[in-house]
Design a protein around this nucleic acid. Sequence first.
DNA 1: ACCTAATTGATAATAATTATCATTTGCAAT
DNA 2: ATTGCAAATGATAATTATTATCAATTAGGT
Lengths: 148, 148
Amino acid sequence: MFESYHQILKRNRYKVTPQRKAILEVLDNTRGMHFTAEEIYNQVKKTNPQIGIATVYRTLELLVRLEIVYKSSFDEGRHRYEFYEGDRHFHHHFLCNKCGVIIEVEEDYLCQLEGVLEERGFMISNHNLRLYGLCPACHRKEKHPETR
Amino acid sequence: MFESYHQILKRNRYKVTPQRKAILEVLDNTRGMHFTAEEIYNQVKKTNPQIGIATVYRTLELLVRLEIVYKSSFDEGRHRYEFYEGDRHFHHHFLCNKCGVIIEVEEDYLCQLEGVLEERGFMISNHNLRLYGLCPACHRKEKHPETR
DNA sequence: ACCTAATTGATAATAATTATCATTTGCAAT
DNA sequence: ATTGCAAATGATAATTATTATCAATTAGGT
Ligand SMILES: [Zn+2]
Ligand SMILES: [Zn+2]
Ligand SMILES: [Zn+2]
Ligand SMILES: [Zn+2]
């Protein structure tokens, strides 16, 4: 599984450097999280203190190009990265307006809409859906404020 | 209709300046379009050559705060603005991978997904969906390249 | 062990957006 | 109509995420 990223790099004639391995390891250890380049940089520095942030940006772009990593914007003025789990139709993200948590939503439910559009002549290759509101914890607190 | 924006500004004790009127007018004349701050700046300069781009940014932020204007990111490294048509559940956007056109999609089709999440304890207040692929024109050309 | 093109780290450059601040102005009260 | 002043503006500096540059280092094939 971790070996396979090694293979993908070799197959595309990219070198397997300690920096690239360290960045892949951080991403692998934080599945389900959505980290910024700087957050990944700070994680990687723990094991590779000499690494430069330019290498982190370059490596992330490479991994995005190789479709190993998915790059998202949640409109915060910077990007977040996570392992690409291999679905062309990627999972959705729920963002809590109160606590800021990002929760992944695996259900698709867009097939119907995409079907309508394809009947209309579109070809849909991907989608990006963000849902906003209150996560269950914040929603519960809002309904029962006395339990705070 | 244009009067109402005047009213909204006054009601919230903001001054109705020529710059704000000019920016609202540009947005009003380009409904269905999705312009960047700079594009709006260039439009407004035609009637108000003295305007500064800082005023455009400030006014757009104000209008977003007043929920008159909606601000979107299409991951191009800058934002785009359009009149908020008053729906809390905003229309979707289709982006053509080939010609770059942005087409609005009015159909919702997210109620089912949002219902599932609300059963799970979430409260969904808004969503943001971007669809990617080929617009009908580009899709047709791809299927019949000889007609180019 | 050697060679060389790829990679790295430091840092400068870029570009969108925001902050600063002196000047101007909308508008409410006179 | 005139005045007073907080709000708004325009010019521009600052900020911030990201990209480009380039000399030094290194992975991986020979
Ligand atoms: Zn929450
Ligand atoms: Zn995710
Ligand atoms: Zn197209
Ligand atoms: Zn739109």
